[in-house]
Amino acid sequence: MTNPQDNQPGPEQPDEADSARTDADAPASSGDVRGGFRGDFDAEQTIRLDRPTDDDDDEDIDADSADATASSTGVAAEDDAPEDQAEAEPTVGPAPAAESGAKKPAVKVSAATIVIAVLVGLLGFALIVQVRGTSEDSTLASARTDDLVRILSDLDSNENRVRQEIADLEQLKRELTAGSESADAARTAAEQRADELGILAGTLPAEGTGLTVRFSGQIRASRILDAVEELRNAGAEAMQISSGGGQAVRIIVSTYFQDADGGLNVGGTKLTGPYTITVIGDPATMKTALNIPGGVVATVSSDGGNVIVEDPGKVTVSALAAEPDLQYAQPAS
């Protein structure tokens, strides 16, 4: 390659000199002259296509003829290279028309033209490759490194943000679950407490271990009240009193006992003997409390009555007191 490159200015000179001179000769028709110039170029190419193998020899001869422009045309002719003659002739100064005519059959294509052709072909190739590469994938494959890094960091931060969001939502879910669990527990506790309060207030039936205390004979209301107080002191949780006719009254905090004709007025309900108090609580403690010396059993016996304390195991307090209807008291928060 180096050799053709170095030699090239030599043969090139005539062309330029030729066109310049032609321009000078006929400035008004420079377009036409250029047309002729291009025609020469085409001729070169055609011949180049015909004789692709002679390049090396020709280049050497080109160098010779360029070195000895005026005197060495004969030498070039000896070498059976008419194209060299044709290229050398313009420096000597024949007519332009004659020169182009002489060139036609013999001028070979210079190595520079091949190089140019290769370069331009490469350009077209690269152009198409780039265009197709760009059009078929305009996203990531053709992106620059720093663009890719930026996209990647964007994705990373996005991922972090989304992960944070997931963590927040899971935390919220845990809190809500725990909240509902605690709400369930609170409701259960509240229900249990309501049940307990209902039992204590006498609005709910109750069952459990306890005693039945049967009073027979002449019984005054104060003795029943004493027995109830004694049982409360002994830890009674729910009580009811029933008459001999099976009528039962729940004994709550506000229940009162009053002597009535032939019986008792318990909380507004008239009962007749014998009376049976059913009480839920610790049986042993309550039995002891009733039987202590000077206690309920002894007092009733001394009055002529009779008390029978039984421990049947599980007892049921089924009588209900009326729901309290509070008019003035409000829950204080």
Partner: peptide, 15 residues
């Protein structure tokens, strides 16, 4: 002319 042909050849090759 040759460069133009070469350009076309390059484009065709690329395609």
């Amino acid at each position: 002319m040759i460069p133009v042909l070469a350009l076309i050849v390059g484009v065709v090759l690329g395609v």
